[in-house]
Write a protein that binds this DNA or RNA. Structure first.
Length: 278
DNA sequence: CTTTTCTCCTGTATGC
DNA sequence: TGCATACAGGAGAAAA
């Protein structure tokens, strides 16, 4: 969605100048924010791509500007005259004038970096990220085989971006609720069909979130983590502690796992008998 | 090498 | 009312 918006608004445009506010936005760019801004000037954006939670803009086909939105990041396309947002960390001016591209991030978990493009079209800095469930390169049978060998909890595996990308805490909880599996059950203790079911549900949840969530880029506003429509209507487990399970009516429980909150149905998703690694 | 924990940040919500 | 603390989230560094 954001990728599409970027594709529609910035492909083919030449970057004239980049203003970076502070150094943190470029902390993953090894040579620093000044180097990043200097090197972007004069380059033309040739493509907008995505893998999991990473976005990148190919620049003259050789390098890519990697954009990670973290949890609160946004890319906005606005006129230069528009008031600069409080948490605007980067502004891109183009040689053809308006509109400007801006990177807004309240919590600055996101950031920008420049990375060489690999022969497969994936930036080197994103090479360790596994394909997400919507890519042709996604091989679910292979993911299941790798999961089956793991002794760790299934939710931990779902959140491991080097195994399968794009699944965050919310999608993981929803997929596990749909699959009726407790997140602390060990991967190795689940059958391959069950692991397939969990991943199938994860892909479905992501597809629904994509289709229902997010605001149109044409409105010059993209809310990446918001997906408010989806959040309000479709969540069965996440954030619903104490409310009745949509399947069986039992109150949804909240537990702490991996320094995060996990929500599940105590009846549909019984805890594993033996304690898993926490 | 593999797996797990910790940390970065700040607006909002809750607690005393 | 007001201050303090908890909480949310992804990912990479650090630790185990």
């Amino acid at each position: 969605m954001v990728r599409r918006g970027l594709a529609d608004h910035v492909i083919g445009r030449e970057i004239a100048r980049v203003h970076l506010a502070g150094v943190r936005v470029a902390r993953r760019h090894v040579a620093g924010s000044q180097d990043l801004a200097d090197r972007l000037a004069g380059l033309t954006i040739t493509a907008a791509s995505r893998r999991g939670k990473y976005l990148w803009l190919a620049l003259d086909g050789e390098e890519a500007l990697i954009i990670h939105l973290g949890m609160s990041g946004q890319m906005l396309v606005e006129p230069e005259q528009a008031p600069v947002e409080k948490h605007c960390h980067a502004r891109f001016d183009f040689t053809d004038g308006d509109p400007q591209l801006r990177f807004i991030d309240q919590r600055t978990f996101g950031g920008l970096a420049l990375s060489p493009l690999g022969t497969d079209g994936i930036p080197e800095a994103v090479a360790h990220i596994a394909p997400d469930p919507f890519e042709p390169a996604y091989d679910q049978a292979a993911v299941v085989r790798r999961m089956k060998q793991r002794e760790s909890a299934v939710k931990r595996a779902l959140l491991d971006q080097s195994l399968v990308s794009g699944i965050g805490n919310i999608y993981a909880d929803e997929a596990l609720w749909r699959a009726r599996v407790h997140g602390e059950r060990l991967c190795s203790g689940l059958s391959k069909p069950v692991l397939h079911r969990v991943l199938d549900h994860a892909r479905e949840v992501m597809a629904e979130a994509l289709s229902q969530g997010g605001t149109s880029f044409d409105a010059l506003y993209v809310n990446v983590n918001g997906a408010s429509g989806y959040f309000e209507r479709s969540l069965h487990a996440y954030g619903r502690a104490g409310t009745p399970c949509d399947r069986c009516g039992a109150p949804i429980r909240r537990e702490h796992f991996m320094n995060r909150s996990s929500f599940s149905c105590p009846v549909c998703q019984p805890r594993p008998r033996q304690r898993s690694t926490t």
